[in-house]
Structures are given as structure tokens and as C-alpha cells.
Simulated assay, not measured.
Amino acid sequence: MGFQLVSKCFCCALATGATLEHVFSAGQLALEVWAYFQNICGIGSSYDSLRAHLFDWWMSPTPRGKQRFVFDIVPVFICWNIWKARCRAVFEEAGVRVKEICEAVFQDVKSAFEVQFSLAAQGVKQIWCSIRMVVLRETRERGGGGLLRDSDGQLLVAFSAYLGKATSLRAEVLAMLKGVQLCLGKGFLPRIVQSDSMLLIDILQRRCLCPWSVRREVEQVWHLVEGVQFEHRYKEANKVADLLSNVGVSHPQELVRVYFTEHTLPSVARGECRLNRLGVPSVRRVRVGRA
């Protein structure tokens, strides 16, 4: 009748409009593909937009070399293979499956590796396993920290812990587990558990697969606080826990320190805790280079 309408989505059961954001980021198929590779490489995402996905991959603090190369090319291949699947669905009426898209991304990564690093032909799985081990085995001395507040923002209990050598994901899981155990041991039952690790929250919400290396600890958290609400908090809203985790690294001779009042908190976290209770927002300080 002369009206130009948005194309129907190819990846969802509902007749959703196939906008660029929906096809590449917000649609169910796109979400599952992104989550699959984010789980492998230990990257969290807010799922806000395609721009957010690309930013999470390209701005991640990874060293140079093969790992950096992977983080640069994977999001490109994800978008490219989602688009090819969309075209096959629209013009050839072909079925679309997440597994097939992921396998196509694996194949593209394999080909890019062979060209970039002059590698002999290897199985896609072998190459990806080696990539995954590089990413997940970045271990160093880690600390954990957390706190429990009541509905008025008053501190009930807090802790800092030395976690030894661990990956970032394992440190996040161990810190959450120690915090939950501490709360229950003191007679508190948390209703909302928050973390600034989007990957951990996705795992706890069962939105992505749990790596085998932290499966036991994640299952312990599920068991201890069954029915609790897991929420993501940005680092700006998680400053006290972040500071306490830094304190945890500094006392390897004492695995866990417990604090029951604001006055007994380490000095670096005391002021931030008071500002949180008063509702004063935190900002992330960044260093801007001069031209």
C-alpha cells in the first residue's frame, strides 16, 4: 500500500523488526553467539548494543601477540557470519542454527591464524583450545573483597581476602563464595548478590555456560543462596569491594580479614563506604593524554 516497513526478523519466533541492532546484537541468535565466544575468552558484556560488544572485545586489556589478534578478529567474524546466515535465511529460506554460525567463526579464525602466524593446517578445535588456554591461564596474585549492607545502606559485615594465584574469573568466583559463606556464618541471608564481573553474573544467571575450572565453586554458590537475585554492578558502584580486594592482596599471611563497622574498615575503603551510604555517586578517573 506504499508504506515501507522494517523487515521481519529471521532469528526469533516473534515477528520482531530486523533492525541492524537486532540482527547483530539484540536478537536471540546474536545473543547466543556472542555469549558463546565471550564465555570462552572470559569477556563480559552489558548486551546494550553492537557498539558495546565491539568495545568490550577491542578495548580489553590483553597483551600483544596471538591473544590480542584473537580479540581483534573474533567480533568481526561473528558479525560477518551472522550476516551471511541472515542472507541465507532471507534469500534462500535456509534454516539458521547457532552451532553452525559458531563453527563458521571457528573456521575463519583458523584460516586467519594460518595466514597471520604461518601455522601449519590444524584442526579448528585444537587451535581454539590453545587460544582458550592462553586466555584463561593468565594467573597472578589475586585478592577478593565484599560487603553486606542493609536496606538503609548501613554496613553489616565486610571482608578482604587473599586468594593466591588465580585467573580473574576464578578470583571473582572465590570472592563471591567467601562473601556468601561469611554472611551465612554470621546469620545474614543475602537477598541480592552483586558483582562487577558481567561474565560471572551471566554464569550465575545461567545465561552462558560455566567453565569447568570454576564449576565446583559456582555450584556451591547456587546451593548456598538458592533463589537469590544476582545482579551486575559497574565498577563505579562497586568501589568499596574493589578497594577491599586490593587490600586482600596485601595480607597473604592472613587469608581473610573481617570488618563489622565502617570505623574498622581499612582507611582506603572507609571514606568510599561513607559516600556510598550517603548516596554520593562515584566516578571513574581516567588519565587523558595531552596533544
Rank of each mutant, 00 (worst) to 15 (best):
S168R: 02
S168E: 00
L169S: 02
L169G: 00
R170P: 02
R170K: 07
A171R: 01
A171E: 01
V173W: 01
V173A: 02
V173D: 06
A175E: 05
A175P: 09
A175G: 12
M176C: 15
M176E: 07
M176L: 09
L177M: 10
K178W: 14
K178P: 08
K178G: 13
K178Q: 15
K178A: 14
G179N: 12
G179F: 09
Q181N: 11
Q181A: 10
L182E: 06
L182Y: 10
C183A: 14
C183V: 10
L184M: 14
L184R: 11
K186Q: 13
K186C: 01
K186W: 12
G187C: 02
F188D: 08
F188E: 09
F188W: 15
L189K: 12
L189H: 15
L189P: 09
P190A: 07
R191Q: 14
R191Y: 12
I192P: 10
V193P: 11
V193K: 10
V193L: 15
V193G: 07
Q194E: 15
Q194S: 15
Q194N: 11
S195E: 09
S195H: 01
S195L: 09
S195V: 05
D196Q: 00
S197Y: 05
S197K: 00
M198W: 12
M198C: 08
M198S: 12
L199G: 02
L199R: 03
L199C: 07
L199T: 01
L200S: 03
L200D: 03
I201M: 07
I201C: 02
D202R: 00
D202C: 02
D202Y: 00
D202V: 00
D202S: 10
I203G: 00
I203L: 05
I203T: 03
L204K: 11
Q205S: 15
Q205F: 14
R206L: 14
R206G: 12
R206W: 13
R207C: 09
R207P: 04
R207K: 14
L209M: 13
L209R: 12
L209Q: 14
C210Y: 07
W212F: 12
W212V: 02
W212M: 06
W212K: 07
S213P: 03
S213M: 10
S213L: 06
V214G: 03
R215T: 09
R215L: 13
R216E: 14
R216W: 12
E217C: 06
E217D: 11
V218M: 07
E219M: 15
Q220C: 06
Q220S: 06
Q220T: 06
Q220I: 02
V221M: 07
V221L: 11
V221S: 07
W222D: 04
H223K: 12
